[in-house]
């Protein structure tokens, strides 16, 4: 059975639901504190869950990104182990430079949302599309172009970069795994399909090798149908977000 460490920084608050989603697909999840790095290299993968690490002081994710535990996670990612950052975990991974990871520097940011109606924190259900034509550790169980219903809950979720050539690289390398879309899967660059003004509707990016993912939406909050609006009658059956965790399990087999 694959073993996943769910990294708990001070201020993280989604560790339990993330661990439950991991265990729902038959992997073992341990919640590991950021300052307990003994045996951290014994895990097959690492998930950085959502929350408010260090209270988002300075800006979301940046202080956790400077923590020594991130050096270990970076080394393990380079060995090919799976690393996924969700929401605040996504912000941490991007601020650490692991994603997009094409140069040894921070190439992107999760900037404050741009939303015509709501300033700051925005929480809703949105649609994302599996945009990658390549298979990676996170879409093995997803069909190409599959649209998923998942929630977002963030104030700083707008992928941004000042490097105008970077997006072309990411598209060419098939690193834009998830993009915000409308009900029909159309990548409409307008609210509400693009809920935060993210650059070309980016919702999740993988590294070049496809073993690290940074995504702003919360798949662990859509792991059971009872969590999905209007689908409560299907109760305990698998929700759309679970396919990402199933993909990780298949990748690690």
């Amino acid at each position: 059975m694959s073993k996943i460490a769910v990294i708990l920084f001070p201020g993280i608050n989604c560790e339990n639901e993330t661990a439950r989603a991991i265990e729902s697909v038959g992997m073992k999840a341990d919640i590991v504190r950021w300052n307990d790095t003994r045996n951290l290299d014994s895990y097959d993968g690492y998930v950085l869950p959502g929350g408010w690490s260090y209270e988002d002081r300075i800006r979301a994710g940046v202080i956790a990104a400077k923590d020594p535990v991130m050096n270990i996670i970076k080394e393990e990612a380079e060995k090919g182990k799976v690393v996924m950052g969700i929401c605040n975990g996504c912000q941490i991974i991007v601020e650490s430079g692991i994603i997009p990871g094409l140069q040894d520097k921070v190439q992107m940011a999760l900037a404050p949302n741009k939303n015509p109606f709501v300033s700051g924190f925005y929480c809703t259900w949105i649609k994302i599309k599996n945009f990658s034509k390549k298979k990676n550790a996170f879409n093995l169980k997803l069909n190409e172009g599959e649209v998923m219903n998942v929630p977002i809950a963030h104030g700083e979720g707008r992928f941004a970069t000042k490097d105008e050539t970077l997006v072309r690289y990411l598209l060419a390398n098939d690193q834009l795994l998830f993009r915000y879309c409308d009900e029909t899967g159309n990548i409409a660059d307008k609210f509400p399909a693009n809920p935060n003004g993210s650059l070309i509707n980016i919702a999740g990016i993988v590294n070049k090798k496809g073993n690290v993912l940074a995504m702003m939406p919360h798949p662990e909050r859509a792991a059971w149908m009872r969590q999905v609006p209007g689908m409560h009658s299907n109760g305990e059956s698998a929700g759309p977000g679970r396919k990402i965790f199933e993909s990780i399990r298949e990748y690690l087999k």
Partner: peptide, 9 residues
């Protein structure tokens, strides 16, 4: 390195 992210600040 810490106080600003040049991609939007």
């Amino acid at each position: 390195k810490l106080l600003h992210n040049e991609n939007y600040q």
